[in-house]
Structures are given as C-alpha cells and as structure tokens.
Design a protein around this nucleic acid. Structure first.
Length: 281
DNA sequence: ATGGCAGAAGCATTCTGA
C-alpha cells in the first residue's frame, strides 16, 4: 500500500500536476498540505473520477490539509482532539487548519502542516513550538489507546544537519534550531520512526527547494517533509522515497512528494489469524 | 543584513511562506 504526502502549495494551481502524478504513481492514500482553499471550493470531482474519496479541512488563502484515498476513510477528525496533557488550550489552534486524521485498515493516518515559525523569537515561532507541544500531547493520548500511527506531512523542521544542503549556513536558524528539533523529538518520543532514515543514512536527499536563487537547479534543498510510523509498523515497511520529479514541472510546488510502501495486508492477515485462534478456543 | 520567488486576494499592493 502506497501512502504519500505532498505540500502542493495551492490545490487549484497544482491540480493537473497532482492528477498526472496520481496517474503515474497510483498511491492508495495521498495526504496534501497547503491546499489554500475553502472546503466548498475544493476540486473534489477530478479525484472522485479516478476512484478516490476526498476528506478536506481547509480555509481561505492559507494552510489547509486533505486526505485523498482509494479506501474510504474511517473516523475522520479535523484538528486536534483529546490533548488533555497539553498546557495549550486546543481552541487557540482552531482557526488555522493544519491537521486532519483518519483510520485506514487499523492504522491512524495523521496529516499535518506544521507552522513555519518565520524567525526564532518571533510570535510565529512561539506558535510553532506551542503547536508542536499540542501535537505531542495529542499523540500521547493516542499512544495510551495503543493506536498504530502514521504521522506525516510538512514538518518545517530538518531533524538533523544531514537534512540541510548547507548546515554551516543554516544550523541554529529557522527549521534547524535545537528548540524546534527537541520539540519534534518530544512529538516522536522514540515511539515514531522516521521512515526515510530506515533506508537512507546519507545527506543529499531533499523534499523542499526554495523558489528563489535557483535553488532546485543548484540542488540546494532541505528535507522537511516526513513520514513517521509506529515502531510496531516498521516490520511492514517496504520502502520510503522522495519523488523529486514533480519539482521539475512548469510552475511546480516548492515541495516534492514523499511516500512509503507499507504492507498493511499483513496486518489484516495477523488480525484474521488471531480471530481464527479465538474461534478454535 | 536583505532580497530573491510564488500564491491568494483583488486590482495595487500586501501578507505569508520557508
């Protein structure tokens, strides 16, 4: 099962590119960020024509997330819920549409667009750190219930210096500061694993290139789009790749899609085996 | 230190992103 994430920087501007990519890659689940559109204006039909269901959580001009899937999404939730351990009041985050979650074959897919944070010490930076703190509390609650998690999206954090083309220049700055990295670590708490780093330990793999300064042509990128999976799922993980090819399109998104191949049928087989055992008893 | 580039809103220019 192919599960992908892509910050498309406007669903309406990128629509034909996304449809082309779906036709090429045939993902089972595609999580989008920065859709930048109200829910009633989201172009649902082109996806439904290809046999996909669409779940949206958007707003005018900014942010916005969506889940496109071949399997019907179950238990769709928009925004944070159950963050009882958070110091932050969830209501603070209601106006920015940055998180949507749904269950597929017993796995909870959580699609996030983490705030950029602008600059260290700014109000937006404080918002980013508070948002990540709320996300950590959100995951703590799901962890208590023993949920299998796939947390994916645009995190706006390079987890290590391997994930920046010029660490000397950018280390300590926005998306590369110790404050952001430790806030991200507090979300993951060792229970969620970076799918990409299971397969690839070297630098030079980017998911975002600035529109400015010819960054893509010079391959000056960052790896800030991630797919984190529960430890229990790592044995089902076949692959994780960044597909930089859409970044070469005319008028591309500044982000490339990232995807994993997760063998969820094995999970169902395990489940069926357990049921058989139950009936034998 | 600043701007570069792109999208949305809306019609000139500002806000936001990363």
């Amino acid at each position: 099962m192919l599960i992908a994430t892509w910050n498309v920087n406007s669903i309406r501007t990128r629509l034909t590119q996304i449809i082309d990519w779906i036709n090429q890659v045939n993902p089972d689940i595609l999580c989008l960020q920065e859709t930048k559109v109200m829910d009633d204006s989201f172009p649902v039909e082109p996806f439904e024509k290809l046999g996909y269901s669409v779940e949206v959580y958007g707003q005018k001009s900014y942010n916005g997330v969506a889940i496109i899937s071949k399997i019907k999404a179950e238990n769709v939730k928009k925004g944070f819920f159950g963050c009882t351990g958070s110091k932050q009041n969830i209501e603070i985050f209601l106006d920015q549409k940055r998180l949507i979650s749904a269950d597929f074959n017993g796995v909870k897919i959580i699609n996030v667009y983490v705030p950029n944070g602008s600059a260290l010490g700014s109000d937006k930076f404080e918002y980013k750190i508070n948002w990540l703190s709320c996300l950590a509390s959100f995951l703590d609650e799901l962890d208590k219930k023993g949920e299998l998690i796939c947390l994916m999206g645009d995190f706006n954090v390079a987890p290590s210096n391997l994930d920046i083309h010029d660490p000397k220049k950018y280390e300590g700055g926005i998306m590369a500061s110790e404050i952001e990295r430790s806030a991200l670590k507090n979300v993951l708490k060792g229970r969620l694993i970076d799918s990409f780093r299971i397969f690839e330990k070297t630098p030079g793999h980017w998911s975002w290139w600035d529109y400015r300064n010819n960054a893509y042509e010079l391959n000056k990128g960052w790896r800030i789009d991630h797919i984190y999976i529960s430890k229990e799922l790592t044995s089902k993980l076949k692959n994780c790749v960044i597909d930089s090819s859409p970044r070469e399109n005319l008028r591309p998104s500044d982000h490339a899609p990232v995807m994993i191949d997760l063998n969820l049928s094995e999970i169902n087989e395990d489940f069926i085996e357990d049921e058989d055992n139950f009936f034998e008893i």
